[in-house]
Every structure is written in structure tokens, then in C-alpha cells.
């Protein structure tokens, strides 16, 4: 199932710009949270691609930076709530990695609003939708990434 299966096209006549967002989600909580949003038929913004990893601890700066390098307008990193990690402490590692990533992104001159970390559990379908809507609105406000050259090429 794809959690992105919602209304794709903007209403005709609408010229609203739609961002390209990359969402990293852990298999056990956040990805399942997206699934919950889907099966509960909760409507949310569809302008993201989701990449599932086994644990948020796997999401190292290289992943996020590569997404930005290839022109992603925003990157959302998500995992289980602290204390709920399927692998006990994977999300604590994710937090460490995220701090590094954030510092690199700041040095590189991208707006901090393009990057966000959220803990979303498997039950929080509504929260998943809320986070996605909020983040999409935030990135939309920032506009296209300066590194977005349109073709995803280096």
C-alpha cells in the first residue's frame, strides 16, 4: 500500500507550487503510522516520497544530504517515540545523527525549516497526517530549494 494515495492533482486553475519532500520512516512505528493514516482514510498532503528503513537509527547524514543534493525541497526524518524503539535505543542514535545533519545543513546554507525530526507511533495515523500537512505547508512557504534544479541530476 502506498500512503501517498490521496488526491494528486491540484484543483484546475490552481497555480499552487507543490514541493518534493522526502520522508524517512522506520519500519515499526512511523511507516506503520502512515499506514494507519491510509487505512483510516485520513486525507493529507500527497507531495512526499517515503523511504522505509528498518530503524530510524539507520538514517545518517549522508541520506539526508543526498536528498538535498538531488533537489529535495524538504526532508522529514521520523521514528518511534523515545523509549519505544523496536531495537531499544535506535532512535537515540537517530537523534545524534540528526544533530550532525542539522549542523551540516545549516553550514551549507539551507533553511533549517527544510529539515525536521518527528516521532510518530504506529497508532498515530492522525498525527502522521497532521505532521505531513504542517511540514508541507512549512516547506511550501519556503519555496523551492535553491538546489532544486528540476531534474534530480547532480
Amino acid at each position: 500500500m502506498t500512503p501517498t494515495k490521496t488526491k494528486r492533482k491540484a484543483k484546475s486553475g490552481s497555480t499552487k507550487w507543490n514541493p518534493n519532500i522526502v520522508v524517512f520512516a522506520c519500519n515499526w512505528c512511523s511507516y506503520a503510522g502512515a499506514d494507519t493514516a491510509g487505512v483510516s482514510r485520513i486525507q493529507h498532503e500527497p507531495h512526499f516520497r517515503m523511504i522505509r528503513v528498518m530503524c530510524s537509527g539507520r538514517i545518517q547524514p549522508g541520506f539526508v544530504l543526498k536528498a538535498f543534493e538531488r533537489g529535495a525541497d524538504g526532508v522529514l526524518v521520523s521514528g518511534c517515540h523515545i523509549g519505544d524503539c523496536h531495537y531499544i535505543f535506535g532512535n537515540e542514535r537517530a537523534l545524534e545523527q540528526f544533530e550532525k545533519t542539522k549542523n551540516m545543513v545549516r553550514l551549507l546554507g539551507l533553511e533549517e525549516g527544510r529539515l525536521r525530526l518527528e516521532w510518530i507511533s504506529a497508532a498515530e495515523g492522525a498525527r502522521f497526517a497532521e505532521v505531513i500537512n504542517d511540514f508541507t505547508a512549512q516547506v511550501r512557504k519556503l519555496g523551492p530549494s535553491p538546489l532544486n534544479t528540476g531534474n534530480g541530476e547532480r
Binding site: 545518517q60 549522508g62 544530504l65 553550514l107 546554507g109
Partner: peptide, 24 residues
């Protein structure tokens, strides 16, 4: 096979694109 998940290579390529104002 880039160590550190290719983060440093990505950093360099972003600078090569050069569309941002670095906090240098």
C-alpha cells in the same frame, strides 16, 4: 564506496551547485 554514507561527497556536490549562501 564512500564512507560516512557519502555525506561529505554530497556536501561537496551541493557546494558545486553553489546556489546557497554558506554559513562559512
Amino acid at each position: 564506496e564512500c564512507p560516512h554514507g557519502g555525506a561529505l561527497q554530497s556536501m561537496m556536490r551541493m557546494m558545486a551547485k553553489g546556489k546557497t549562501k554558506q554559513d562559512r
